[in-house]
Design a protein around this nucleic acid. Structure first.
Length: 505
RNA sequence: GCGGCCAUCGUUCAAUGGUAGGACAGUGGAUUGUGGUUCCACGAACGAGGGUUCGAUUCCCUCUGGCCGCCCCA
């Protein structure tokens, strides 16, 4: 209203074809929104087109990695029995104690939106009797997981994990090769990463260690923080993560788990490290690295950005380890297992922070523009012909003005625009405009698709290369004759009008 | 789950106890069928609810959501 008061010339509240959709009668056409906008649930995120290229990159890298390392894709349901996670992940863990989206359904059954991918995968292994197949079983999985946490950047309540897991093989080379795969993954998407690795041994070693650790920290009780005192009772190994000054000092002298590994555990770990050396994976031993999930044993590792290794607030991009006890815990045959998973959103966040260049997806190569109804009809078919030929085509069929269509073509960054107007329809021709040079040629409409394919097959000239010194001459030579051979009326844009070539009549 | 900071057009950033302005993006123009630059115009926001007040986008409370730290984790 105030607008119209100030600016009577402009505002005419009466007819806006779009807005008053239904209600015809009534008096004041309220331009205001009536219903409040719906909110996104906490920790949930829409992935809009602008972000899809990151997802495509990571997804392609993961698919490729899995394929080349010989992992088969498996998808499990998002919803599982609550008991699966209580048994698999561990009753005492934070994930199970306070972070699960659990509910009782109409049938009275307790179910949970999966908070991680490993337990469901192990469940599937058991359910389908996978131990009857040749071992090891190598599985690749990708999907949404849910944790009821306080959201932050790179931390959501619904997020995406992917994982690589190997079942039925206890050989240390499995651990090492998985770590190698993890490192390769990040390299493939353009991130420098480093692996932090440790061994927490088998259950027996770990119990012994915990005892000693608790005894040691008790002796330093006066120097550690309140939080760590609690940790000693609940989850002793966590004290090693504490960043409090006093605790860090105490930690320096603390017993290290490697000293408590029995022969077998120690041996396993050493061999993993040897393989890592062989694979030239950059890794750091982290004597105090532990994991929050109950099922881990022996090798545990995290992958972090290489310049983050020392940073104290660093978050892992990927994490995993060996979990030989899990399948048995869930009721299957004793089956060794090892795997890791990574958080897609965190990887993408990192890609953005590092400004890693990510290829566009759906980049159209050709735009079809039309002028007049007959042309519009013909371009419909042309569009489809090109599309079926595997050319990325774009259009704006509903627009009339050629100018607008070219604007769109330009914005989309296509290499060529096909222009069809009244004249071309009558002549059975089409214009192919090179968007970089502005040169247009007339081609037979029937040969238009073939001609475009031929042009697209040639390497694109360097995009507006900065003051490039003497470029190679080869490409230029290669292109020119091609244009001439066909004698295609290379009509140059503006300057041509006057001295149009005679060939027109 | 705990503590702190924050919430204005699609995006980003202003101003204000008397209903908000710019930039970018968008849409439409600058004579007939030609983009990138330029110029003009237009559309577009105070997250929700309550309170104080003559009057709240502005002050207070609650909710919702975001960010930071903690817990924990990918």
């Amino acid at each position: 209203m105030p607008k119209s008061a100030k600016n009577p010339a402009a505002a005419k509240p009466a007819e806006k074809p779009a807005k008053p959709a239904e209600k015809p009668g009534e008096e004041a056409p309220k331009p205001k929104r009536t219903a409040p906008a719906p909110n996104l649930l906490r920790g949930m995120k829409d992935i809009l087109p602008g972000d899809q290229k990151y997802w495509a990159l990571v997804r392609n890298a993961a698919d490729h990695l899995a394929a080349t390392f010989g992992f088969d894709r498996v998808d499990t349901p998002i919803l599982e029995e609550t008991a699966l996670f209580v048994r698999g992940v561990g009753k005492q863990t934070d994930i199970v104690e306070k972070e699960m989206f659990s509910f009782v359904d109409q049938g009275g059954e307790s179910m949970t939106l999966r908070p991680e991918l490993t337990a469901p995968l192990a469940r599937a292994y058991i359910n389908h009797g996978m131990w009857n197949h040749p071992q090891p079983i190598k599985w690749y999985t990708w999907g949404q997981v849910f944790r009821h946490e306080r959201p932050q950047a790179g931390r959501y309540r619904q997020f995406t994990q992917a994982g690589l897991d190997v079942f039925g093989d206890r050989h240390p080379v499995i651990d090492a090769n998985l770590i190698f795969a993890a490192h390769t993954l990040f390299k493939d998407v353009g991130l420098d990463a480093i692996v932090l690795v440790n061994s927490i041994g088998d259950a027996a070693s770990r119990e012994q260690f915990k005892e000693q650790l608790v005894a040691y920290y008790r002796s330093k009780r006066s120097q550690i923080c309140e939080n760590c005192k609690k940790r000693l009772q609940r989850n002793p190994m966590r004290v090693l993560d504490c960043k409090e000054e006093g605790c860090v000092a105490v930690k320096a002298e603390a017993p290290q788990i490697v000293d408590f590994l029995n022969e077998e555990s120690k041996n396993h770990f050493i061999r993993v490290l040897e393989y890592l050396d062989e694979l030239e994976v950059p890794y750091q031993l982290q004597p105090h690295l532990v994991r929050g999930l109950d099922y881990y044993s022996h090798t545990v590792f995290e992958v972090v950005g290489s310049d983050d290794a020392e940073k104290h607030g660093q978050v892992a991009l990927a994490a995993g380890g060996r979990y030989d006890a899990l399948i048995e815990t869930l009721g299957g045959q004793p089956t060794a297992a090892c795997g890791f998973s990574w958080g897609i959103e965190r990887v993408i966040l990192r890609l953005k922070e590092k400004q890693v260049s990510v290829p566009d997806i759906n980049q159209p190569e050709v735009f079809v523009a039309q002028l007049g109804e007959p042309a519009r009809r013909k371009t419909l078919a042309l569009f489809n012909a090109l599309r079926k030929d595997g050319v990325q085509v774009a259009e704006s069929f509903s627009r009339d003005a050629l100018k607008q269509q070219l604007e769109i073509a330009n914005r989309l960054g296509v290499r060529y625009t096909v222009i069809l107007g009244q004249k071309e329809v009558l002549d059975g021709t089409a214009l192919i405009r090179d968007m970089d040079s502005g040169i247009q040629e007339i081609v037979d409409f029937k040969k238009c698709a073939a001609e475009l394919k031929r042009k697209l097959a040639m390497p694109a000239p360097p995009k507006a290369a900065p003051p490039a010194p003497p470029q190679e001459e080869e490409p230029l030579l290669a292109e020119e004759p091609l244009l001439k051979e066909e004698e295609p009326e290379a009509v140059e844009e503006e300057g041509k009008k006057g001295k149009k070539k005679k060939g027109d009549e």
